[in-house]
Each structure stands twice: as C-alpha cells, then as structure tokens.
Design a protein around this nucleic acid. Sequence first.
DNA 1: GGGAAACGTTGACGTTGGTTAAGAAATGAA
DNA 2: TTCATTTCTTAACCAACGTCAACGTTTCCC
Lengths: 205, 205
Amino acid sequence: MKQRPGNTKADEQAINIIIAAVKSIAPMSGTDIELMLAILQYKTVKKHQLLLKEGEVSRNVYFLVSGFFRMYYIDFDGNEINYRFTDQHNFLVDFQSFLIQKPSHFYWEAMQDAELFVLPYRDIQDAYASSPAWNNFGRLMAEHVYLQLNERVEMLLFMNPEERYLHLLKTKPELFEKVSQFHLSSYMGVKPESLSRLRKRLLKK
Amino acid sequence: MKQRPGNTKADEQAINIIIAAVKSIAPMSGTDIELMLAILQYKTVKKHQLLLKEGEVSRNVYFLVSGFFRMYYIDFDGNEINYRFTDQHNFLVDFQSFLIQKPSHFYWEAMQDAELFVLPYRDIQDAYASSPAWNNFGRLMAEHVYLQLNERVEMLLFMNPEERYLHLLKTKPELFEKVSQFHLSSYMGVKPESLSRLRKRLLKK
DNA sequence: GGGAAACGTTGACGTTGGTTAAGAAATGAA
DNA sequence: TTCATTTCTTAACCAACGTCAACGTTTCCC
C-alpha cells in the first residue's frame, strides 16, 4: 500500500476487510490482490467532511472500512436531496462521474468519522488493461451497481410514497437506525412534512 | 452464424450493423468478432409478439437490427407500466433477469415488425471466460446500461411530471414520434389523463 | 451547561395527480 | 368500408403532496 504524504496508516484488519469484500465480488488470485494492495491509499475523514463536491470529477473509487456516507444533490430550490447512502464495507463511487470523467452532480458527505481506501481512476484503468481478473471485477461491480440502481427505479416508478416507506422498512431496516427521518424523506422523494404525516397515517391503521 | 431450425436468414447488411454497434462500444479484433458471429442466431418477430414474459428467465441478450420494442411491467392494479423503449441498432436485455438468471418482472413487446440477433446467456458467459476483449465489452455494456438507468432515476427523483415531459421533449424527441401519449405516460410515471392535462397546461404558457 | 442548529410534528391552504366516467378522434383489422 | 379497439380529451370529485408557518424536541458543539 502506498504511504503517501497525508496517508494515515491502515492496520491489518482494514486490509483484510477490503480483501474479503473484493473476493466476495469476484475470484482473485494472490497476484491480483497484490496489484490492488500496491495502489491502495488509506485515508481518514471526519464527520461532516466532504469527499467529493458538485462540479468536481470523481477521480477515485473508495472502499469504506468504517463510517457511513450520504451522496446528495442540491436541487433548483436549494434543497439537499439524498440520492444514496453507503454503509461500511462497501465500495463508494460516483459511477457516472467516474466512468465518463465528467464533473459530478453530487456531494459525498461523511455522516460519521470514517476510514477508507482510495483507488485512483488511472490505476484502476491500468488494472483493467493488465489483468483479466480485474476486468472481470470491473464488470461485476458495474453489474452490481446496476442492480442496486434498478431497485431504486422500481421503487420510485411503481410505488407511491406510502408503499416506498413500507418497502424500505422491510428491505433496508438498517437505514432507519442510521438515517434521520429528515434525510430519509428526500431519499424517498417526498418532503419531510409529508413523511411525518404518512407515518401518522400508517400508525392509525 | 448458427442456422438452427426456426432461424431465418440474416443478410450481410444486418451483420454489418451489429459489428459496427459492437465496435462502437469496445475495440474488437477479427477473432473476437468471429467469436460473436459463431454464436449469433437470427430471428424475426411480428408486431405485438412478445420476446419475453413475466416469470420467464431472460436467457438471451438481443440486438435489434430493425423494429422498436417496449419493456413493460404489470402493476398491482393490472396496468401496463412502460419501463423502457428500445430502438433499432441497440442491444436489448432484461439485465436484471439476465445477470442473476431469475424470473423477469417484465414483458418485452415488439411495437413494430422486428429483426434481431440472439446471443444466448451460456455463450456470452463462455465468451467472457475465454476472451478478455469480451469481458471488457461486458463491463462497458454494464457501465453503459448503468448510465442510461441513472438518467432515468435523476428524471424520476429530481423532476415533477411537467419537468419530465419537457426534459424528454428535449433529450429524446424520437420517442414522441414512435410512442403514443398513452404509452409515454406510464414511462413518465403518470396516468394518461394527467399527461393530457399537463400538456394542456403547458400550451397555455 | 447553555445556546444554536437540526429535526419532527401539526395546521391551514393551494395545487396537482388519481379516479371514474363519458365521449370524440384516430387507428387497425376484417 | 365498416366495426372494434385504442388513444386522447374533458369534467367532476377526492386524496395526497407541497408550501408556509409555528412550535416543541432533540442533538450538537463550544
């Protein structure tokens, strides 16, 4: 792992976590893992710090060793709209900005102190070019993210706010522990007041 | 190209179209193209015919040489909800069902007589395994489909129906030529009556 | 601990989309 | 051509979300 200026030190534990996460996505030989360890950079981020701002190009894929992030967008009226939440032990990337290397529409904010690994765009493209296993990993990761996004479209397209709430309760109960009603509401595509009323309505039933 | 029973015959022209489409997504050597031609099957479909039904597993990727398809879903109330439209010279796949080989939620219907190429799941997985170029292609296709879907989420999440209509007019004018207002409405996430009213409202401005 | 900020709830009111129903217009098939 | 089907529009009514505002509660941070 690169120890560049500004890099804090990753412990054994953190490295084992990312190796397990990668292997759970695609099979990897020792050499392929070495390739990854050589490009990893370790970083810590304080609560409320931003990893990415609107207008910046996402030049990295991140892996969240610990902490919790939200990806949000600021709409025409200046409201923050939460687009996605990412929990620890997951990869974290503005896939759109990363893939086409264009400025992002999003902000990435740490909602808790976080530790993460940084995988620079350039190094990942090199890995794709030099290792079939990494290319395979890239394909699986894209497919994986596609499926996640697909779930979101289905929720927004096929369900009304009440159904979305019940669906999230059932499929992502963790969210309700980590995220305030306020932040959840924009993720659901409604205003905080509407979520509050919706919950009241459901309680009556 | 395999000439199995039931396969009609593809002409030179159709083969050139798919080769061009593949090369526009990822660079391919002659050998890689041969690999594809060896697994291609040619098929024609009449207007209103279904390529896939809810509950079936999507066992193929298709390439649309000519014609126009809609992918739709039937909601709890029995309404057909259009999820995606695919025009000629594009790949056509229920990515979710295809990736995990689980039953699809969707129907694929030809809205015009169509000619297409069929690429079976098994053969594609073999191509991924045997050719890095195909793995690369698979990754790029997944990324490409991701970006398309992402556009859709942004539209549904960040815009109200009126904004969605104006946005589609600007970004996908072809849709308005090929698709009736009726079919467009469910794609936009509203009822036909609402789209009609919305258009009337806009005309007044 | 205390003040500020963020969050949650409620009310009143306007707007808009859903629902139902009906009929006109366009399209398609026999 | 003619009949049936699909699509489009309009109307009336209702339910639900957005907006604005007020206020209580919780959390955060110095």
